[in-house]
C-alpha cells in the first residue's frame, strides 16, 4: 500500500564519518507521525549517533562529516543554515543517564521554555504541572517543586527529563536508552508514559533492551555496524524477520 503522504522524517542515503571512520552507512528510513519507532542493535552500531544527528547534537563534537539527506517536516535539517536551536526544541532528547540540571524541580521543567520566551510565573506553573502530569511524575513531586532535582531517584529524574522536554512542546521525542540505568519498576513507569505520549508525539526510542522495543515500539529498526539491516512493524520483526542477522540478534544468538 503506497501513499503519497510525506513522512514526518525522511532519511535518504545518509552517511556519517568521524574523521575517517564511517559510523553510519547509507541509511534510508522514514518516521511516520505519532508512531513509536524502536531502534535496536548492539553497542557501536550507530544508533546513538543517528539520534544525535537528528537534533544536531553531534555538532558539539568537532570532526564529524555527513552526507545524504535528512528531511524533517518538509525541510532539511543538515547544513549550516538550519536554526539548530529551534530544531532542538522540536526534537526533544532524553539521555541514557538522567541529566537534571543542578536546579529545582520546577526550574528544570521550565528551563527550555523559559529560554524560548515563556513569561509569567503563573503560565510557567501551569506548563510545569501539565508537563509533569504527562510524564507521570506530578503526583510524586507536586508538594516539593522547589526542591533540588538532584534529590530525586533515578527513575524520577528520568521522568523529570521527559517532562522537561514536553514543556518545550516538541513534535518528536528522541530517547537514547532511557531506561538503561533504571530498575524494572521505574522502567515500567517510563514505558507507560511513552505509550500515553504516542497520541500527541512521535517517538524514536533507541534501546539496548530488545524486549523493550517489543513491548512499546510500533515499528522496529535493526542497526548493525552502521547499517540499517531491517525496519518493519515490530510484530513482524520479532516473529518473522527477513534477515537472518536480525533473527540472530533478537534471539540472543548473536556473534
Amino acid at each position: 500500500m503506497e501513499t503519497n503522504r510525506e513522512p514526518l522524517i525522511r532519511v535518504r542515503d545518509f552517511s556519517l564519518w568521524a574523521s575517517s571512520v564511517r559510523i553510519l552507512n547509507r541509511l534510508a528510513l522514514d518516521v511516520e507521525p505519532n508512531e513509536i519507532l524502536g531502534i535496536i542493535g548492539p553497542s557501536g552500531s550507530g544508533k546513538t549517533s543517528f539520534l544525535r544527528c537528528l537534533n544536531r547534537l553531534i555538532d558539539l563534537v568537532p570532526g564529524y562529516r555527513s552526507e545524504g539527506e535528512i528531511v524533517f517536516g518538509g525541510r532539511t535539517i543538515l547544513g549550516p543554515d538550519v536554526n539548530v536551536v529551534e530544531l532542538r526544541r522540536k526534537m526533544g532528547m532524553v539521555f541514557a543517564i538522567p541529566v537534571p540540571l543542578p536546579r529545582s524541580i520546577f526550574e528544570n521543567v521550565v528551563f527550555g521554555a523559559r529560554l524560548s520566551g515563556v513569561r509569567g510565573r503563573r503560565t510557567r506553573l501551569d506548563l510545569a504541572e501539565e508537563s509533569l502530569r504527562r510524564a507521570g511524575l506530578w503526583d510524586e513531586v507536586r508538594e516539593r517543586l522547589d526542591e533540588s532535582a538532584l534529590n530525586l531517584s533515578g527513575g524520577q529524574q528520568q521522568r523529570l527529563c521527559i517532562a522537561r522536554i514536553l514543556a518545550l512542546k516538541p513534535e518528536v521525542i528522541l530517547l537514547d536508552e532511557p531506561t538503561s540505568g533504571l530498575d524494572p519498576i521505574s522502567t515500567h513507569k517510563i514505558e507507560e508514559s511513552l505509550r500515553k505520549l504516542r497520541a500527541a508525539y512521535t517517538i524514536i526510542l533507541v534501546t539496548n533492551n530488545v524486549k523493550q522495543a517489543a513491548r512499546v515500539a510500533d515499528r522496529t529498526a535493526f542497526f548493525l555496524s552502521g547499517e540499517l539491516v531491517e525496519i518493519g512493524p515490530t510484530a513482524r520483526i520479532f516473529t518473522a524477520p527477513e534477515d537472518p542477522r536480525t533473527n540472530d540478534y533478537i534471539s540472543g544468538r548473536f556473534g
Binding site: 547534537l57 532542538r88 539521555f95 529560554l115 518545550l168
Partner: peptide
C-alpha cells in the same frame, strides 16, 4: 552531561 542536556533543550 549538563552542557549536553542544556543544549539539547534548545539553549
Amino acid at each position: 552531561t549538563y552542557r549536553e542536556g542544556s543544549i539539547a533543550l534548545g539553549a
